[in-house]
Design a protein around this nucleic acid. Structure first.
Lengths: 262, 262
DNA sequence: AAGTGGTCTAGACCACCAA
DNA sequence: TGGTGGTCTAGACCACTTG
């Protein structure tokens, strides 16, 4: 029955030369990215999707299974398939790896120190793959674990990724956005998803041991030169674009970074 | 046709109450663990396995796909399915996360400092889930990256895991084993697999920043109190048993620890 | 009871590889 | 050319959730 490079009928741009289930997966990612399917939403059932796309249920299933494996979608027997919510719980387990030495995982509180636009510096250009002279949003904050200052953090996001952030780089960003960032504190990825349609699916972290600088020592209330764990993270969305660069320096006296490799 | 809790016919111990493909997966893991299927070996084809186990090809496929996703098995279209070899390449990419700041990944050289049996200390008892008084093999070594000393490392393995290591804990272990450890340097997990039938599939790493002690400073040729990245790793085999505890302290001046989260 | 995802089967054709 | 895994289909029954 099948010809050679099969092709879906319902797409705008023609996708070819990859398996049907992969094409369907791409189509679903588009629907999530463009807001047709929003976070938390119930998707049509496998049978409905199969009929709409004119493929078998098994093919739809394979596409959904892959999305589920990537945590983009959650499947619940008897209920249906849902778009993942980057809620606090998930953000905590998936993207926040500092845990207490006793194994407890606590949500850190955050205090925003500064929030401003600026022209991308060399490090930002490199890690966010920007053109020279691009604008970025920069957030500086101090985070607390168990009430004690534990992490000094700088975040950079390309202005181009956030339409609401357009404007001269030497003026203050909208107050509303600052409030959003302050409020979402620990679940920025959920904010990106629900507000900007950006789905973070991956992060690359580079870790090293460094000595606390004067400012860090002051913020974290420790001696100068105290060893800190530096976490240099770039978050990447479903289309492979770097969305956020985050440089954290953490005290690891009562906490450690947990990595599970499998 | 199907009854309720389906059951395979060919097993020794009865496995029940889980899906057929999961039972088949377990059976395959047994065959790999007990040496019936050795590293690098070509497995029977899906159709042969399906016939032998009296299930459909699709069910065998699902079991094999899961093993492939776990890197326990490698599938090659047109050739067949093979038991994974923990070769240097794989060990490097999967379990060794220290990379050069320029992105290069180099295989470290190792120099064994000491190699002896002993009674498990508190930390070893806890991390390796041992009974008090159990014996462990302890290896102390210094590792070099780009010719320069970079990592100070202590490894502990329960004697019970290695039959060839049985004997009084206050005597020296067999020379042959020491030679093996020295030679395999970076691919201990391959040694565990091919020699002892232990398949490492997972590792849990805890990272923190610490200050170099006197001995470490001497070995690594840096100043006292230099910040070091401490990596506390427990390797776990396919049956969930902790096999090895490794405590490393690394210089991160020209290298960093790379973690990819997805 | 109706609808969902989860498991399992049987069979087709394809792309790839080795002899 | 024959055998392998990779894709796709069609249809069955199961377990779970909701009304």
């Amino acid at each position: 029955m099948c010809g050679m490079p099969r092709r879906l009928k319902h797409e705008g741009p023609v996708i070819e030369a990859k398996p049907l289930y992969a094409q369907i997966r791409s189509l679903m990612l588009h629907r999530i990215g463009d807001g047709t399917w929003k976070p938390g939403m119930l998707l049509p059932s496998e049978l409905q999707l199969a009929e709409e796309l004119a493929v078998s249920q098994g093919t739809v299933r394979k596409a959904l299974d892959e999305l589920a494996a990537q945590n983009i979608v959650v499947r619940r027997q008897g209920r249906g398939t849902f778009v993942t919510t980057h809620d606090a719980e998930r953000a905590l387990h998936h993207f926040f790896h500092l845990v207490g030495d006793d194994g407890t995982r606590r949500l850190p509180e955050s205090q925003v120190i500064s929030f401003a636009r600026g022209v991308a510096q060399a490090g930002e250009v490199a890690r966010l793959e920007l053109a020279a002279g691009s604008g970025v949003l920069r957030i500086r904050r101090l985070r607390f674990l168990g009430g004690k200052p534990a992490i000094s953090e700088t975040i950079a996001v390309p202005i181009a990724m956030i339409p609401e952030l357009d404007g001269p780089v030497d003026t203050a960003p909208p107050e509303e956005l600052r409030d959003l960032y302050q409020a979402s504190s620990n679940t920025l990825y959920d904010l990106y998803h629900s507000r900007f349609g950006i789905v973070i699916v991956k992060a690359v972290e580079r870790l090293r041991a460094v000595a606390a600088t004067g400012e860090e020592a002051r913020l974290l209330k420790v001696a100068l030169e105290t060893p800190l764990l530096e976490i240099d993270r770039v978050a990447i969305d479903v289309r492979g674009r770097p969305i956020e660069w985050r440089l954290s320096r953490a005290l690891t006296l009562e906490h450690h970074y947990l990595a599970e490799i499998e």
